[in-house]
Every structure is written in structure tokens, then in C-alpha cells.
């Protein structure tokens, strides 16, 4: 490879599912909304302390809503994945982004993981682990059937390579 200053990593081929942003929004809401809701309720029920709670309410609501609005869209632009003959390649994150490459010959286990929220949207996540304690690649928010096929494909591909993958 030439040492020029205009090389970069190309984005993997497949986007995550179209329903993923909705799932991330719901996830963000579960994380960001309870606290402002509590302060809102306190604002309604404790009139003498309203001047405190209105500020607390706003201080937690505004960043929370901004997070809910920005994060899912941004993530959807970033999250991508791809499986080639030799490797699994995935990109994730939004502010901090992560590119991961694991050769199929080093894959130890392949598993699917579906949280309750993901199930609600018919989504699924695939985790590909290696012998390294920080080597797992996670592809989240893809369609359930695609995930199933992916796991099957990866399992077959990794069984084809002998060795203990360290």
C-alpha cells in the first residue's frame, strides 16, 4: 500500500435495519426521560418549590431530548456491517466511532442477542467473539431473519477453519 495521505477505510456494505433508529430512540427515551418526568411531577405537586423544579426539569429535559433527536439519526448514518470470505467488518458509534475487523479464522463463538426492546421492533443483534478479552464484534439492530442467516453463515465459515483461534 502506498503511503499517500488520501487513504481511508471504506464503509462496510450493509446498513443496519430501517427500524433501528426507532429502537435507539426508544432506548434513549428510557434512559433520558424518567428524571425530567419526575421533576415535572414534583413541579406540579409542590407549588412552593416550583422555581427549583422548573430549572431542574429544563436542565434534564433539553439535553435528553437533544440526545433522543440526534443520536439515532447519527448512529444510523454510521452503523454498518459486512462479512467477506475472510473477515467480519463492522462500524458502530456516533460521537466516538469504532471500526472492527476480525478474520473468520479467529472467530470462536457466534451468538445472537435480543433485548426486549429489540424484540419489540423485530430486530436482533449478532455478537462475534474471539479469544481476546476485548475482541468481540457486535452488530446490533439488524433484521431478525438476516441475523439468523448471518449466524448460520458465520458458524459454517468458522467451522471450516481448524485450530484454537488464538
Amino acid at each position: 500500500m502506498e503511503r499517500t495521505h488520501d487513504v481511508g477505510l471504506r464503509p462496510p456494505r450493509h446498513r443496519v435495519d430501517r427500524r433501528a433508529p426507532a429502537w435507539w430512540t426508544l432506548q434513549a427515551a428510557v434512559l433520558a426521560l424518567p428524571l425530567p418526568l419526575v421533576f415535572g411531577a414534583l413541579y406540579l405537586f409542590i407549588p412552593p418549590a416550583r422555581f427549583v423544579f422548573v430549572w431542574l426539569f429544563l436542565a434534564f429535559l433539553v439535553p435528553g431530548v437533544a440526545y433522543m433527536a440526534v443520536m439515532p439519526v447519527w448512529r444510523y448514518r454510521v452503523h454498518r456491517w459486512e462479512v467477506t470470505e475472510e473477515a467480519v467488518y463492522a462500524v458502530s458509534g456516533w460521537l466516538w466511532q469504532q471500526w472492527r475487523v476480525v478474520p473468520l479464522s479467529r472467530v470462536q463463538t457466534v451468538e445472537t442477542l435480543r433485548g426486549p426492546l429489540q424484540q419489540l421492533f423485530g430486530l436482533s443483534g449478532v455478537t462475534v467473539t474471539t479469544a481476546s478479552s476485548s475482541g468481540a464484534v457486535r452488530i446490533k439492530g439488524i433484521d431478525r431473519r438476516i441475523a439468523r442467516d448471518l449466524v448460520e453463515h458465520l458458524t459454517r465459515a468458522t467451522q471450516a477453519t481448524p485450530g484454537d483461534a488464538t
Binding site: W96, Q98, R100, P103, R106, G135
Partner: peptide, 13 residues
């Protein structure tokens, strides 16, 4: 080396 994990913050990008 059995894989790569490349990270970039907004500043790094």
C-alpha cells in the same frame, strides 16, 4: 494480533 479495533473521536476525525 487477531483483529483490529479502530476508534476515532470527533476531534480525531
Amino acid at each position: 494480533v487477531i483483529g483490529w479495533k479502530i476508534t476515532r473521536s470527533a476531534f480525531q476525525r
